[in-house]
Write a protein that binds this DNA or RNA. Structure first.
Lengths: 327, 327
DNA sequence: CTGAAAGCGCTTACAG
DNA sequence: CTGAAAGCGCTTACAG
């Protein structure tokens, strides 16, 4: 049989109220009484029921996390950062996935309405989530990681600065005929913008031909290079807005008989695990994935446990990682 | 103000009992009454408090999942499989990490004792977890994924068969002088055993010199090759018990001036995302990661929602994936 | 310093 | 078919 607060109270010959006081470290308990209660707690291995405490206190000590999916590279790292902070604060992590579209959204909305958690972390949320009525109506504390133009407080990496660092690196190495392979979405757009700004400052510029938009896969990078080569455009550097795409670019260049980094230097974005395994290894931009998760979680918990107000956007620095693809 | 069952009852002019009946789809409710109650529920957007339901029913509708960490390759895939099944069954997923050693374990034990979830999934759990007293004492349903010799019901991949397939592939290609780079741990041992058994059946065998144990990193694979080359052993094939190690083996061979796959063929294990990005891409063994998660979750939920008994070990097939490193 | 009682928001016998 | 009451296991005014 499960031991309850009533059982502890009986054994310690006090009321449940007093046991509760000891449990919650309230003052106003006689030292000797407290000791006795603690002894009984230790002897019985009593742990308060999370559910009952939650109901009585009106909070769950649970933090919800909504992720786009668990397999995409990077999600695990961010989540690890979140978990580290949340676990340390003695909260639980309730994980939800947005992988199944409308169905996922319905489930998620339900959880919000059911008060399944005290606070919420949104990883790269789709608009359907951030515009969600249930979420807006609730006064649930929310922090977004990597959500573009979100109405909620957010934490993100300085991707534009990272892309700018790549551009500067290219220029410093004397590469002037630069091509870009970009993906769909706002993240890629922000990177492209950061990259372009440096080029323009330097009096160089990116012509329309030099920018290829493709899908964010290795296949996309490879065919973008084929297209670039076929167009006859001369280029001695390629910036891909994503490491996976960059890996495809490497393959495409190899097939086209161009050497890397001699003929063409290549840089990616993200510093995914694969970046060190390509041939040659990729120069890329590291996003502080773990720190993004940690920071977001810390801000949320600050709101939950203290009263740190929640607003604005935190931007974490990115870092240029130089490897052989663009030394 | 939050709308409660009492409020719904008041508006529908029935008792809370009746609202509860409608909520839980009990029969014995007048059709017209049920309609009226449902209308009020819809109008108010009422959702039962997860905490209160949990307390009253004695279950949380939460499934706990303990992972070794979120960044290691493969964990995300398994977790995705788990999430798909758990979310579909209308349960929540309470995620815990074993990344912080004793501290993590204490937290985890606490959750078990606090009845924070109705059932538990353990991913590649350390002995400290499976031997945990709190866990054994509780009658919590548990399913283990990839736990060697676990006392709990488990789901795992047929690694030995996968390794055997690699050995057969090598032999079929006429490679007789085979070396193995293995890691620490029982997983690696199982793979080595499967590999070795095929070789012995074929009258070939693996001498002590041909087996190098190293750490499970690219650096480990690289130095293992250096060592192998330095030893003067002749070899025309390398089986690495892990893709990351295999990637290091590739590097080591390149440095030693051996071509892959001409001089030496190489196979890894795991089919991690990086396997397609190495040069040449890796022949390897695919473990059914997502299916492992799905199967484990399905078994656990079968126990929770139905009464499917829980025992024994489910072994899922692995698959040889042939790429250019060992065509 | 301590306890009886009410309350958190539900569900479940029990009685009708 | 329906409701009053007790109960799930805690916490929190309130009174002493």
């Amino acid at each position: 049989m499960r031991v309850t607060i009533a059982e502890v109270a009986r054994r310690a010959r006090v009321s449940k109220t007093t046991v509760s006081r000891v449990l919650n470290n309230k003052s106003d308990v006689d030292a000797a009484t407290a000791v006795r209660v603690r002894e009984v707690i230790a002897a019985t291995g009593y742990i308060p029921s999370a559910g009952a405490v939650g109901l009585a206190k009106g909070r769950t000590r649970l933090v919800g996390v909504l992720v786009p999916g668990l397999s995409p590279a990077g999600v695990g790292e961010v989540l690890q950062g979140v978990a580290d902070v949340v676990e340390e604060s003695d909260h639980g992590l309730l994980l939800s996935t947005a992988a199944r579209g409308a169905d996922s959204l319905a489930r998620f909305t339900h959880q919000v309405r059911a008060h399944a958690f005290d606070g919420l972390l949104l990883l790269d949320p789709p608009p359907a989530v951030t515009d969600n009525d249930a979420l807006r109506d609730s006064d649930l504390p929310v922090v977004v990681v990597d959500g573009a133009r979100s109405v909620f407080p957010s934490v993100t990496g300085d991707d534009a600065a990272g892309a700018a660092a790549v551009a500067r690196h290219f220029l410093a190495r004397g590469r002037r005929r630069v091509a870009v392979v970009t993906g769909p979405g706002e993240d890629a757009a922000a990177r492209l913008a950061g990259f372009r700004s440096v080029l323009e400052e330097a009096g160089s510029s990116l012509t329309g031909d030099a920018v290829t938009e493709t899908v964010s896969t290795a296949g996309g990078g490879r065919s973008a290079v084929r297209q670039l080569v076929a167009s006859g455009l001369a280029f001695d550097a390629v910036f891909a807005c994503d490491d996976v795409v960059a890996a495809g670019v490497l393959t495409g260049l190899r097939e086209a008989g161009r050497t890397v980094p001699e003929d063409v230097v290549v840089a990616g974005f993200g510093d995914l695990p694969l970046a060190v395994f390509t041939q040659p290894p990729l120069t890329t931009v590291r996003r502080p994935l773990r720190a993004l998760g940690e920071t977001a979680a810390r801000r949320l918990l600050g709101k939950l446990t203290g009263d740190t107000p929640l607003d604005g956007m935190t931007v974490l620095p990115t870092e240029l990682v130089v490897r052989e693809s663009a030394p």
